[in-house]
């Protein structure tokens, strides 16, 4: 589904197709909840009415119904008008930056189990500012030192919260 015609370097999906896919996904998700997750994760209580499973079951059943209706909605859109549909685009360079951001944050949070808050945050802030395209060294250093410093002082001495 790469769409080189309109110059999008990545994935481009028509609304109808996306809704069909999402409809299938949510229908399966609802069924998985009803058949596997809820029975294994919520115990049956003898004589209880309504059961602790009642609400989650109800919501999952509703999700299945809505998943099917989203599927039908997508199918109809696809059939009726393929040209005037909205398009969901996943441009590679945009998605890559989102993934890099997530990667940096995950590494940053994981590092706080071993490294103190201040150095971990200084590095993470500096890396994020750089990754987002900032090329002026003084801005990178100032942001990387100032923001964690203010947070650290505010939290530790202002709100008396011990940071990792």
């Amino acid at each position: 589904m790469a769409n080189p015609e309109n110059g999008v370097n990545g994935l481009s999906i028509k609304e109808g197709k996306a809704e069909i896919g999402l409809g299938i996904f949510f229908t399966i998700m609802g069924i998985v909840f009803l058949a596997i997750i809820i029975p294994t994760q919520i115990k049956y209580v003898e004589g209880a009415y309504p059961q602790p499973r009642f609400f989650p079951d109800l919501i999952s059943a509703l999700t299945v119904v809505l998943g099917i209706s989203l599927f039908i909605q997508g199918y109809r859109k696809n059939k009726a008008n393929k040209e005037n549909q909205e398009t969901y685009t996943f441009k590679w360079h945009e998605t890559r930056l989102v993934l890099i951001t997530l990667g940096i944050i995950i590494a940053y949070v994981a590092s706080m189990y071993f490294v103190p808050y201040l150095p971990a945050t200084v590095v993470a802030t500096g890396v994020l500012v750089t990754v987002y395209g900032q090329r002026k060294i003084w801005k990178i250093i100032l942001t990387a030192l100032l923001v964690p410093g203010i947070i650290y002082v505010g939290m530790t001495y202002g709100l008396m919260i011990r940071l990792p």
């Binding site: 951001t101 944050i105 945050t121 993470a124 802030t125 994020l128 500012v129 987002y132 900032q134 801005k139 942001t143 923001v147 964690p148 947070i151």
Partner: peptide, 8 residues
Amino acid sequence: IIYPCVLM
């Protein structure tokens, strides 16, 4: 600059 600050 803004987005890294908000993330932190």
